[in-house]
Design a protein around this nucleic acid. Structure first.
Lengths: 201, 201
DNA sequence: CTCCTTTTAGAGAGGTCTCTCTAAAAAGAG
DNA sequence: CTCTTTTTAGAGAGACCTCTCTAAAAGGAG
């Protein structure tokens, strides 16, 4: 039924991902993606109603790839192990998918999130909420006596997401790959930040 | 001697900084800055030969403001104190200068660094080298027995620069300010990451 | 085969941006 | 005052981008 597509949605998203990884969201123009994929701009507009929708596809592709393994790591039964595994996962996933990792180092706002189609914004919201609640569960498990719940959440997010991403940023933004060593450093740091301390003021 | 300026270089940089803080480097167009400052585009081109030169001025303004206090903190005599003070400084400076901090959360490459005038690139290089060597001195002081020097450098940079910036990013990118609490968390985390451990595997 | 649907193909309008260039305004030096 | 220098002022060329719109190509259903 109908003419077969010469340029699939995946082809076009892949071209856009490559451009975004190299030059950031500004490099993802409809004209540039069409050029990179060898397609006319009309084909692009046939798949995506406008530029924000394409940017949403790029961002969500990266995010969902990342979160797939993230959920598994965060769901480990012992909270400290879950935290350390997740920190390690962030580095390993980034090493395996440097292009996608480079994209997630931006914010969704840099990819024009406010202008996204409603369905894409909803997907983003629910994806973030799901991982957020897994992270909250880990944080509750690692709360120190007398510590307010949101401060524990802060500490855990820092050790498990922000710090590993900072480490990734350090390498990827220098144009290098993520070295083996960094995986250990991330896991180590998460453990140091989250393991209960003997007894200090 | 000559007509007095109605729009000083500082005025124009200030307008550009505000735009960059709000919308990132993409928002810093010659047209937008001129509009924001109430100046005609010609006045802008009178001060800056082209857009990369303006972007360089914005980046260097933020960087040099940050590094001024950074040098002092890094120069403290005891290395662990220097590290913890620097981590605290990153948060305090960011709280005091949220616009400039938002700018430093990008990379210089996002501000089109390869196209900057040679003098600006040189200023960037020497500024980074100076702080880098102070950081290296701290790292040497905190090296654990048997640890390779570059791994110590990695660990220290992570604890003293990357982690505090990640914390700042978390807040500023949500549109919030940097809370008091975060300053303590940064100093605390730096100390946990860098203090020698009792004796573990 | 003919119809129907999907997709490619790309021209072109309308917008914004960078940067150049000319002209005039403004104040001090003499 | 006139001369000189600095700066404002903004028109306009040329590039690129987004998005619309029309027309044709191409395969399956009947």
């Amino acid at each position: 039924m109908g003419r077969p597509a010469r340029f699939s949605t995946d082809d076009l998203v892949a071209a856009a991902v490559a451009l975004a990884a190299e030059g950031g969201p500004a490099a993802v123009t409809m004209a540039a993606v069409a050029r990179a994929a060898g397609a006319p701009s009309g084909s692009l507009y046939h798949r995506f109603p406008n530029r924000p929708a394409l940017l949403a596809a790029v961002w969500l592709h990266a995010l969902e790839s990342f979160q797939e393994g993230c959920r598994a790591a965060l769901s480990a039964p012992r909270p400290l192990a879950a935290a350390v595994d997740t920190a390690r996962y962030v580095l390993e996933w980034s090493g395996a998918h440097p292009d996608l990792a480079r994209i997630l180092l931006y914010r969704s706002a840099d990819f024009d999130e406010p202008a996204w189609p409603a369905t894409d914004r909803a997907r983003l919201g629910s994806a973030n909420a799901e991982v957020g609640s897994l992270l909250a569960a880990v944080a509750r498990g690692l709360r120190e006596p007398g510590e307010p719940e949101d401060r524990a959440m802060e500490r855990v997010a820092l050790a498990v997401v922000e710090l590993p991403l900072a480490l990734v940023r350090r390498h990827l933004r220098g144009g290098r790959d993520v070295p083996e060593d960094a995986v250990r450093l991330a896991a180590d740091s998460a453990e140091r930040l989250l393991a209960p301390r003997p007894a200090t003021g």
